[in-house]
């Protein structure tokens, strides 16, 4: 075999092995869940503190959703995975029709939701032109994975509120509280 051809084959082999190692190391990294030190305080009839791992271990819900800012900047829609807020409320006595839900974060941000919203009653918008559109069943979740990845710091790592459904719809961004560390039923 010509020497040049041999060199080419060797180069290709080295490249293939290198790519293989990179792919394997990525798989290994994904396989290992990052340790996240984060507590969520739930306050209802009783108080409960959940770690990030305990939240992730709860039965999850997956749907699609995105949001836009007050000036119309669009984010998403994304594939969102997390725990239904109603399930979290049920851990501390549940939420009733006359209750409100106060969600806050350590950056000093707070948002208040009524019972209907916790049950999925939000105005939804078309992702293309942001015109109001009707929707099927919506769920308000505490999201920990976005498009299959844990959240980035800017996106509210490790947990944020998301409003999701089977369809790819948008909701107002003020509801998508980032870095949630306290949920209180009043």
């Amino acid at each position: 075999m010509n020497r040049g051809v041999k060199v080419l084959i060797i180069l290709l082999a080295v490249a293939t092995i290198t790519l293989g190692i990179i792919a394997l190391s990525d798989t290994y990294r994904i396989g290992q869940r990052e340790e996240i030190d984060w507590n969520l305080t739930l306050l209802g009839d009783e108080e409960k503190v959940l770690t990030y791992d305990e939240i992730v271990a709860m039965p999850s819900y997956e749907g699609h959703g995105g949001f836009f800012t007050t000036v119309g900047m669009k984010n998403g829609p994304f594939r969102c995975e997390g725990v239904p807020i109603e399930d979290l409320c049920n851990l501390v006595g549940g939420i009733g029709p006359s209750d409100t839900l106060w969600v806050s974060a350590p950056d000093g941000y707070m948002m208040v939701f009524d019972y209907d919203q916790v049950m999925g009653d939000f105005t939804t918008f078309d992702p293309d032109d942001l015109r109001e559109v009707s929707h099927g069943e919506l769920s308000m979740i505490l999201m920990y994975e976005q498009d299959g990845e844990i959240l980035s710091d800017d996106d509210g790592k490790p947990i944020k509120i998301a409003i999701v459904s089977e369809d790819e719809l948008m909701t107002e961004g003020s509801y998508w509280v980032k870095w949630v560390n306290r949920i209180e039923i009043r």
């Binding site: 800012t69 007050t70 119309g72 409100t100 009524d114 032109d129 942001l130 015109r131 003020s174």
Partner: peptide, 22 residues
């Protein structure tokens, strides 16, 4: 009120005034 929502169809409230344009 903490929950600020119209209960009629006469008034529409949006997060930002820019959204009223459309």
């Amino acid at each position: 009120p903490a929950i600020f929502e119209p209960d009629t169809k006469k008034v529409i409230v949006r997060g930002g005034s820019v959204q009223l344009l459309s």
